[in-house]
Computed example of a mutant assay.
Amino acid sequence: MSRPDEEQLVDIILAEQLQYTNAETAERGGLTPEQAARLWRNLGFPDPGDETAFGDADVTAVAIVANAMEHEILDEDTVFRLTRALGQTMSRLADWQATILVDQLESDIVRGKSDSRADAALELAQTSVPGFERLMVHVWRRHLAAAAARLTALGENDQALLSTDMTVGFADMTRFTALSNRLDDASLASVVEEFETRCGDLITAAGARVIKTLGDAMLFVHPDPVLATKISVDIINTIGARPKLPDVRVGLATGSVISRLGDVFGPPVNLAARLSQVARANRLLVDQATADALGDTFEKRVLPPRHIKGFGHLSPITVSERLPFRSR
């Protein structure tokens, strides 16, 4: 059973009384109980059974979905694909936010701002949730507009909407397993967060997109091989210069990728990951397609053939900044 302060915290965040079962919510919102249960699962929550686990806001959410299907704004398959994407994204976002807020709670207690974690959590919920809810919707709209613009830029070719040429980058911290065995939890979390923050800043500032983070690695894409290479060099120079961070290695590959479910798929994705795994610390390896697109912008050196899992024997190409000419 949850403690009273936990129940109070949940009530503040949800801002309503939970009073309906799944069947009652479905009836009020206009879906069948089976559809409502499927919606709930797609959003990332366990089957509530006959518990009173829903409120008026849940009824409104069900009604939105029912209206979209009833008026054929969206077909049922599309609705449930969208809600699954929403559930998975929001679950990760909520966990991420809660972890960050724990640090704030501890800081409030140390500084004497709050007497207990429960008091600090309640105060944060009351003061920050409404504002961040508006911010979250605004940021989602901005990202949706950017995604729509990218699709529009691909033109009217249906095939182009399914796949497009991209340069895929995979930045990977070296010796991360050994590091994780040596550091305590707080120190390890700090290393991962700094890596993700600094890499993410370099990637997004240059017009690339972070596709996902994997703890010790980051996957990103850019339509321009030259700019993707510059980003990779900047990551190596920045992360490699940080004494508190492990060395980093980057793999780049260019070719046709498929964008689905917020992720990218295709041979360039796999090859970029493989190249990062065989690269030396603070080195960038690229495939032939990427190297061909670079011209004389960077220094390039073809390495001896080696076995790349899933691709046979390839000759990776190491790329570095071209040093300026100095006259004697």
Results as ranks from 00 to 15, higher is better:
residue 87 G to V: 00
residue 128 S to V: 15
residue 29 G to N: 07
residue 41 R to C: 00
residue 292 D to M: 11
residue 155 G to V: 06
residue 326 R to D: 14
residue 16 E to K: 10
residue 31 L to G: 00
residue 231 I to V: 12
residue 150 R to F: 02
residue 52 T to I: 00
residue 46 P to G: 14
residue 200 G to Q: 11
residue 301 R to L: 05
residue 204 T to A: 08
residue 67 N to W: 15
residue 114 S to H: 13
residue 196 E to R: 09
residue 22 N to C: 11
residue 267 P to N: 04
residue 185 D to Q: 14
residue 61 A to K: 09
residue 297 T to P: 13
residue 206 A to L: 02
residue 105 L to R: 06
residue 21 T to D: 12
residue 217 A to M: 12
residue 5 D to S: 15
residue 13 I to C: 15
residue 235 I to C: 00
residue 95 D to N: 10
residue 183 L to I: 00
residue 6 E to P: 03
residue 292 D to G: 02
residue 228 A to G: 08
residue 231 I to E: 08
residue 209 R to G: 05
residue 156 E to V: 05
residue 221 V to L: 12
residue 278 V to D: 06
residue 63 A to W: 03
residue 273 A to I: 02
residue 99 T to I: 03
residue 62 V to E: 04
residue 281 A to W: 07
residue 70 E to G: 01
residue 194 E to Q: 13
residue 148 A to Q: 14
residue 141 R to F: 14
residue 187 S to A: 14
residue 178 A to C: 10
residue 211 I to K: 01
residue 29 G to T: 13
residue 182 R to K: 07
residue 314 L to Q: 03
residue 135 L to H: 06
residue 92 R to H: 07
residue 206 A to H: 07
residue 72 E to F: 14
residue 289 A to F: 08
residue 321 E to C: 01
residue 235 I to W: 06
residue 218 M to W: 00
residue 316 P to G: 09
residue 136 M to Y: 10
residue 242 R to G: 12
residue 183 L to F: 00
residue 197 T to G: 03
residue 122 L to K: 12
residue 273 A to S: 10
residue 201 D to R: 10
residue 311 F to Q: 04
residue 40 W to T: 07
residue 85 A to E: 08
residue 76 E to H: 01
residue 210 V to K: 02
residue 294 L to T: 11
residue 128 S to A: 15
residue 223 P to I: 08
residue 3 R to G: 07
residue 191 V to S: 06
residue 240 G to N: 11
residue 234 D to L: 10
residue 131 G to W: 11
residue 67 N to V: 12
residue 274 R to L: 04
residue 119 D to I: 09
residue 70 E to M: 11
residue 56 D to M: 15
residue 113 K to M: 14
residue 100 I to E: 13
residue 326 R to I: 08
residue 201 D to N: 05
residue 310 G to I: 01
residue 90 M to S: 10
residue 62 V to W: 01
residue 196 E to M: 08
residue 177 T to M: 05
residue 121 A to Y: 05
residue 11 D to K: 11
residue 138 H to L: 14
residue 90 M to D: 02
residue 79 V to S: 03
residue 216 D to G: 00
residue 154 L to W: 11
residue 127 T to F: 13
residue 307 H to R: 12
residue 90 M to Q: 05
residue 36 A to N: 06
residue 47 D to P: 11
residue 80 F to Y: 12
residue 206 A to N: 12
residue 252 L to N: 01
residue 51 E to W: 09
residue 281 A to L: 02
residue 39 L to Y: 03
residue 149 A to R: 07
residue 269 V to Q: 04
residue 323 L to T: 07
residue 55 G to I: 01
residue 26 A to T: 14
residue 183 L to T: 05
residue 78 T to G: 03
residue 13 I to H: 06
residue 58 D to T: 04
residue 281 A to E: 15
residue 17 Q to A: 11
residue 204 T to D: 01
residue 312 G to C: 08
residue 114 S to E: 14
residue 155 G to H: 12
residue 66 A to P: 06
residue 65 V to A: 06
residue 58 D to C: 02
residue 302 V to H: 08
residue 258 I to H: 11
residue 129 V to S: 11
residue 170 F to K: 01
